[in-house]
């Protein structure tokens, strides 16, 4: 269980400080798929960076299985939107996956089968000798997923991983990710500003308000069976209710500006 307890994040000091997150709390169960949804600048990525251990909290605490998160660890792997810069361009597909295994000192004999398994899972087993530059955007994201899964983390932290892909590739990546998630039973925390994407993927959606001092405005449980269909009436209903909530947030921003 990943537990976030009244987390507040303030950047800078005194007058120059910025209150990014205020009193955020949520329990994320093992194997759950949680989406953090909100307008840009609402602190979604900040929260994700805190979960990853890249940033510290100002107040509150974050624990994984009752242990404090003090820094990055192999139990949590972060995914980046820009796979091009997150991957190692001088290593082949296979070597990118091998990178984490080498660092963990996985015995050489075991690495081969692990690499095979995850490259097959993401459909890149026939491209193992290629370099990331020779892959399409979707394939690069799949390689990022294989590289992460190979070190067997408990939690995948994904920062708008599909935002830069074209619509068709994105749809394919959505069903692909749900498949992988169902196969591997990982906990996923997925940041997005796309309402449809969050309904398609998540067990629960945490809606974040605009900053400064953004907090969870609401946490919605999506009960629709998978695979989900955006044309479905129930899907549309959830979509409209989230949209209303976000519009409310936008108007708040407008009032402040006015």
């Amino acid at each position: 269980m990943l537990k976030v307890e009244s987390v507040t994040k303030i950047y800078g000091e005194q007058e120059a400080s910025y209150l990014a997150l205020e009193d955020i709390a949520i329990d994320i169960a093992d194997g759950e798929f949680l989406c953090l949804l909100g307008p840009s600048g609402c602190g979604k990525t900040t929260l994700l960076n805190i979960l990853a251990g890249f940033e510290s909290v100002t107040r509150g605490r974050v624990t994984l299985d009752r242990r404090d998160i003090r820094g990055p660890g192999q139990d949590r792997v972060m995914f980046f939107q820009d796979a091009g810069s997150a991957l190692f361009p001088w290593l082949t597909v296979e070597e990118n996956v091998n990178f984490g295994l080498k660092l963990r000192r996985t015995p050489k004999a075991e690495r081969g089968p692990i690499i095979d398994r995850y490259l097959t899972m993401v459909g890149l087993d026939t491209h193992r000798g290629k370099f990331p530059t020779q892959l399409s955007g979707g394939m690069r994201q799949r390689l990022q997923i294989a590289r992460a899964l190979a070190i067997e983390p408990e939690i995948l932290l994904m920062d708008e991983p599909f935002a830069a892909l074209d619509a068709l590739t994105r749809r394919r990546m959505h069903s692909f990710l749900v498949d992988i998630w169902q196969q591997t039973q990982k906990t996923i925390v997925f940041v997005t500003h796309d309402i449809s994407e969050s309904i398609l993927l998540a067990d629960r959606i945490a809606i974040m308000g605009v900053g400064p001092g953004s907090r969870f405005e609401d946490v919605i449980r999506v009960e629709l069976p998978r695979p989900r269909d955006p044309g479905d009436a129930a899907f549309g209903e959830i979509y409209r209710s989230i949209e209303r909530q976000l519009a409310l947030e936008e108007s708040k921003l407008g009032d402040e500006a006015g």
């Binding site: 990853a52 890249f54 990055p72 192999q74 949590r76 792997v77 972060m78 980046f80 820009d82 810069s85 997150a86 991957l87 190692f88 990178f99 984490g100 660092l103 963990r104 990022q144 590289r147 992460a148 070190i151 983390p153």
Partner: peptide, 17 residues
Amino acid sequence: PIARQRAAECLGASEFQ
């Protein structure tokens, strides 16, 4: 890229690595 350094960190790399 900071993303590349953080990715390596997640995969278990030390500062020196």
